[in-house]
Computed example of a mutant assay.
Amino acid sequence: MEEEAGRFSTKHCITQSNMPEPDISVTTPQEFGSDYDYSHYYAFSDVSYQDYGLCEKTHVRAFGRIFLPVFYTFVCALDIVGNTLLVFILIKYMKPSSVTSVYLLNMAASDILFAVTLPFWAVYAHSEWIFGDFGCKTITLIYTVNLFSSIYFITCISLDRYLNIVWASSTNRFVKSPKCYVMCIVVWALSFLAAAPDLNFVKLQEFDGKKTCTHEFGGEHLSPWRIFLKFQMNIIGFLIPFLAMLFFYLSICCFAVKMKLGKKSRTLKLAVALVVVFFVLWFPYNLVLFLHSLQDLHVISDCATSKRLDLAIQVTESLAFTHTCLNPILYAFVNKRFRSCLFKILKKVCKRGRAYSLECTGSTSISSDLNTGIELTMVENVQ
């Protein structure tokens, strides 16, 4: 993929001041908000010069420079607050002894690390990459690893619920064994594997006086890595996890209906909600991402369509990122024990707030009385 999932909206178009020349390999880096299209990426032997007209995208850049920094900051704040609270409650009160709590703890840590990268992309979307080559590789690696690991841990949670409800006897052995920790290691390993190409291909580059943090594949227009990375997010970041979740939760629903488990009706509703939310938030982004990949492969070359895709990918990507903010609510706040712990924390905070307020009020009244006494004494002395 020319730009990976989370950075599509910060770098969309390629800038090229001159028309392409036949039989010359062009390796110009991508820059967010440039005013031209991708045409000169492709072989020139079968295409005439007229096919490489300019495609102005000034309004796309103007929209992204305002919308993306604001939205990234908003998502970052909510993500860190919600998931930090989740981690605190899991460690302090609930103790990660069950399989689900172990997955939740890893998912929350992944979401927090993902949120930490968003301010960097916000600055990049607004201006240019100012964090150096090391920062380019590091931030990209952290971003990609935690984007995939968050999705994979969601899938692991659905697997655990499937084992817990449909195969209750198997899940007891699963909880008592270290298999869940092995699964966590596997998830992190797969996520690092998915992000490994970034260490090699992502580089700090400069074009037209602006620094960019982009993939660089050399002079190969359609290298295997370029094609693979274009569809990486679609296949292993969405399609496979979604199909797995769909299977697990459909099995849970069928089992609950078959066994007529009235007490499991809440589980049914939650299962449906989790699948629907995941699909609604991630499918639009992956659809636009797929169409954007077709544009990179020159299947779509219309300028008007390119503009719409650039705008759509900014909006749908931001929508997908809100899933990290909703994870604490979807996967933890529905738990009674978690809610009781949360209410205890809120009560303590309220009590401390009232006590502090009373202290402030008391000190203010004492100060007021002292001032009044001083004023009366001064008046008496004057008289």
Rank of each mutant, 00 (worst) to 15 (best):
V75D: 06
A168Q: 12
L118D: 05
R161D: 07
T100E: 15
Y162H: 07
M107P: 03
I112V: 10
N83M: 03
L90N: 10
C76L: 07
K92G: 05
L86P: 05
W121C: 06
K92R: 15
N172G: 11
Y93A: 14
L141M: 14
N106R: 01
V175I: 13
G82S: 12
F120W: 00
K92W: 15
V99T: 15
S169K: 15
I151A: 09
P69R: 04
L118P: 06
V166W: 03
I112H: 01
T171C: 11
K179D: 10
F153Q: 08
R161S: 01
Y143H: 14
T140W: 03
I157N: 00
S110Y: 04
N83G: 05
M183D: 13
C76H: 06
S177C: 04
F74V: 13
W167K: 15
I154K: 06
C156L: 08
P119N: 04
H126N: 12
T144P: 08
V99W: 10
V145Q: 08
T84G: 06
K176C: 08
A168N: 10
A115T: 03
I80M: 02
I142C: 12
S150F: 04
V87Y: 04
I80Q: 04
S98Y: 09
Y93E: 15
H126E: 10
R173M: 12
I112W: 05
F67K: 00
K137N: 06
L118M: 15
Y93S: 15
W167Q: 12
A122F: 05
C180I: 14
V166Y: 02
C184I: 03
N146L: 08
V70A: 01
I89M: 07
V99M: 13
F67M: 06
T138F: 14
L163G: 07
L86V: 06
V175F: 09
F148V: 10
K92A: 14
A77F: 14
D79P: 05
M94Y: 00
F74I: 11
Y162G: 00
Y72D: 10
V175D: 13
L159A: 04
L104V: 05
I91Y: 14
Y93L: 13
F114C: 04
S98F: 08
C136G: 05
V123T: 09
C136T: 06
I130S: 11
R173N: 14
V175C: 10
P96I: 02
S177I: 01
Y181V: 09
E128P: 06
W129I: 03
W129G: 05
G132C: 06
T73G: 14
L90Q: 07
G135K: 01
N146H: 13
L104Y: 07
A125G: 13
V102D: 00
F74W: 10
L68A: 11
G135R: 03
S169G: 09
G135M: 08
D160S: 14
V145A: 07
D160H: 14
